[in-house]
Simulated assay, not measured.
Amino acid sequence: MLIGDISAATGVDRQTIRFYERQGLLPEPRRAPNGYRAYDEATIDRLRFIRAAQGAGLTLADIAEVLSLRDGGQAPCSHMSVVLEQKLAEVRSRHQELAVLAAELEHLIETGRSLDPAECRPTDICRIISFK
């Protein structure tokens, strides 16, 4: 299959497929006599895995580790479980950070509602956000 066929089958654009090749996420395809990349069916599954893993929040580095294990003949399930647990911990931590930020934004909005713009001095940038 040519790169256009792989792109159509997976919804991954050609530039992204080439990028994944350069990053080592996809094996170097064989070349047809005309120099075109010639892919096999396994590329489709690999691209679908990469996209699904990205959807689960994995980075390309995370994905590369999993693919390397698989390519080395190991089942990556244990490694993947650890990576997913780490991702969940990161998401939970980020969720807490966002909750704190949301509370701060709510406070600033309330502050803004109580201020009279007519009382702003020319030297004030914006009194809603206090930096003094």
Rank of each mutant, 00 (worst) to 15 (best):
L67M: 07
L60H: 15
Y36T: 07
D71Y: 00
E65Y: 01
A38H: 15
D45L: 03
L67Q: 03
G72S: 14
Q54F: 06
A75N: 08
F49M: 09
G55H: 10
A53P: 09
R70W: 09
I44A: 12
G72R: 15
D40K: 14
G72F: 14
G72A: 14
A56D: 04
G72W: 14
R48E: 06
D71G: 10
A53T: 00
A38W: 12
I44L: 09
Q74S: 13
D71A: 09
D40P: 02
L60G: 02
A75G: 02
L47W: 03
R70L: 08
A38F: 10
G73N: 11
I50S: 03
D62K: 12
L67H: 05
G73D: 11
T43S: 14
G73K: 15
R37W: 07
I63F: 04
R37H: 11
G73F: 14
Y39R: 10
T43W: 13
I63S: 05
Q74V: 12
Q74G: 06
R51W: 02
I63Y: 00
R51K: 11
F49W: 11
F49E: 11
G72D: 13
R37D: 04
I50L: 10
L58H: 00
T43I: 09
A61G: 04
R37I: 02
E41N: 11
E65I: 01
G55C: 04
